[in-house]
């Protein structure tokens, strides 16, 4: 039976996608509104939340990103499936 990912995997990824989208929106907004303190606070909260989600994801499912943005287990599993387009 080929490798199957638990539902938790997809839930975490979806949550990560949503929070990263909010970060992108706020980042673009802040490029043109540098003095908006509320937005900066929200941006920092969202970034922190995103970092926590990534740590949680990697604790459960191994490295999420390549080239040093994620730690690897032993043996090397940074190139394990599923890759992004296989998710």
């Amino acid at each position: 039976m080929t490798k199957q990912m638990p539902p938790e995997y997809y839930k975490l990824l979806e949550e990560l996608q949503a929070i990263d989208f909010v970060i992108v929106e706020l980042n673009l907004y802040l490029n043109t509104h540098p003095h908006d303190f509320e937005a900066i606070k929200q941006f920092n909260e969202a970034s922190q939340h995103s970092m926590h989600l990534k740590i949680e994801f990697e604790r459960q499912f191994g490295p999420l990103m390549n080239f040093g943005k994620s730690y690897s287990n032993y043996p090397w599993d940074v190139d394990d499936s599923p890759w992004p387009w296989q998710v």
Partner: peptide, 11 residues
């Protein structure tokens, strides 16, 4: 929620 924002494509 962030998911709603994602689904609508804007914050």
């Amino acid at each position: 929620s962030p998911k709603q924002a994602l689904m609508h494509g804007t914050l």
